[in-house]
Design a protein around this nucleic acid. Structure first.
Length: 411
DNA sequence: TCTGGGGTCCTAGGACCC
DNA sequence: TCTGGGGTCCTAGGACCC
């Protein structure tokens, strides 16, 4: 056994575990429900019978997680709150406390690292661990060490976790879902045929909704269906890289190592508005939000010690179409005003005639702030792109650049 | 009143360079 | 009047994941 995958169920308030509970939605909306009913009371002081209910929720947002009793009604992660309210109106709804989630996440990961040091971060509640070299890591096919880790996590955090142990990351991830919550599953390469092949294609980490639809059109529904195809046939239908990968995955082949260190590629902030905003009518509001997003990204970069060169925006229109624009500048920066100005140039290159649902700001092409290549370039060298020409024409440090024909001079 | 926020990686065309 | 062939960077979009 080389790899091991663990994920945790991040839910506090043990008194609620047996009840249908969803966590998520808009912070403001949930707080509003809480305030109306229990002004000034901490969550822990509210008796379970008095908790706010999903049927009282109004507004946007999605579910972050749900208890198992709630999942029995068909609600789950990423589902819209309004849809969930139809399925399970009696569920208790709680706000997400991201600071606390992060705190528990760190504790979860450090607890594992103390026992098995090779840990790969896979987000807030998941990790891969390589315990090939951990003393005792092979006992009972890895079960002994998995138990030890599971117990340590529970002792330190009070949280349960599901663990899969397998010869590689791909199988370990699938194994971890076999025995939820708080289970341990040990898979061997030989189990792929009997335990993995009957599963739907979506269970492969890397096959999403689009690939699922395309596979279904080709009459491929289970992982075994994929495994039964010729590699070249998959390559013809899905491309050289994805097709070959899909074939390997269906056969349980995966050579990726556990990666313990990585540098961020980009940092971003985005927000979905309470209601769709229009570039003209909601100009003030939009402008203020835009500036805030830029300042937040700048703060994130500075706090974490990074600078970036590519600054971009993202918008989501009311019809859910997404547009992105970005621009690479000639020096690295983490400065809010620079980000704001460059992002403002990007905004002028996109259609602002439609109502907007979301606005985001991103800084990519990151480097460590103290790295030598991040120092300012000696002289700015002009380049001839249209965007630069526009920036030059409108720029000269002017906070209110000239309008571009056909678009609105909002920012 | 379906559909968050923060990421990564891939593709593909055009610019530009040697 | 048939115009190579790499390589890298930039930009936009999209799939996917937690």
């Amino acid at each position: 056994m080389d790899a091991f995958f663990a994920s945790v169920e991040l839910l506090r308030y043990p008194q609620l575990l047996g009840l249908p509970v969803v966590i998520g939605g808009g912070r403001r909306q949930v707080d509003e429900i809480l305030r109306q009913r229990h002004a000034g009371l901490a969550l822990s002081e509210i008796p379970p019978a008095d908790f706010p209910l999903l049927r009282d929720y109004v507004g946007r947002g999605v579910i972050t997680t749900a208890t198992y009793p709630a999942r029995r009604f068909g609600v789950g992660s990423a589902m819209g709150m309004m849809k969930a309210a139809k399925l399970c109106p009696q569920a208790i709804v709680l706000p997400v406390d991201f600071d606390e989630v992060r705190r528990y996440s760190r504790l979860f990961k450090s607890t594992i690292a103390e026992i098995a040091p090779l840990v790969e971060d896979r987000g807030v509640d998941e990790v891969y661990v390589d315990f090939t070299e951990v003393p005792g890591g092979q006992r009972q096919g890895g079960r002994a060490l998995a138990r030890l880790i599971q117990r340590a996590i529970f002792d330190k955090t009070g949280l349960t976790c599901s663990i899969g142990v397998a010869p590689n990351k791909l199988i370990a991830k699938m194994a971890s879902e076999f025995n939820k919550p708080n289970g341990i599953s040990i898979f061997h390469q030989e189990d792929v045929q009997s335990l993995i092949w009957p599963l739907p294609v979506r269970k492969i980490n890397g096959i999403g909704p689009k690939a699922e639809v395309k596979l279904a059109k080709l009459h491929l529904h289970t992982i075994g269906d994929i495994a039964a195809q010729q590699r070249d046939w998959l390559i013809d239908n899905f491309g050289k890289s994805y097709g070959a990968w899909m074939h390997d995955a269906a056969w349980g082949r995966d050579e990726r190592p556990v990666v313990t260190e990585s540098e961020p590629v980009s940092m971003s902030r985005e927000t979905t508005f309470d209601r769709d905003l229009h570039a003209v009518r909601d100009k003030e509001e939009l402008g203020a939000i835009f500036t805030q997003l830029c300042m937040k990204v700048a703060g994130d970069l500075q706090r974490k010690g990074y600078v970036g060169k590519t600054i971009g925006i993202k918008l989501r229109y009311d019809d859910f179409r997404i547009a992105t624009r970005d621009q690479t500048i000639d020096h690295f920066t983490a400065d809010g005003k620079t980000i704001r100005q460059t992002a403002g140039q990007c905004l002028k290159r996109v259609d602002l005639g439609r109502r907007l649902r979301l606005l985001g700001v991103r800084v990519g092409n990151l480097a460590k702030a103290d790295a030598p290549e991040t120092r300012p370039v000696p002289r700015a060298k002009p380049s001839g792109s249209a965007a630069d020409a526009d920036a030059d024409a409108a720029g000269h440090d002017d906070p209110q650049p000239a309008p571009l024909s056909g678009t609105l001079n909002l920012f």
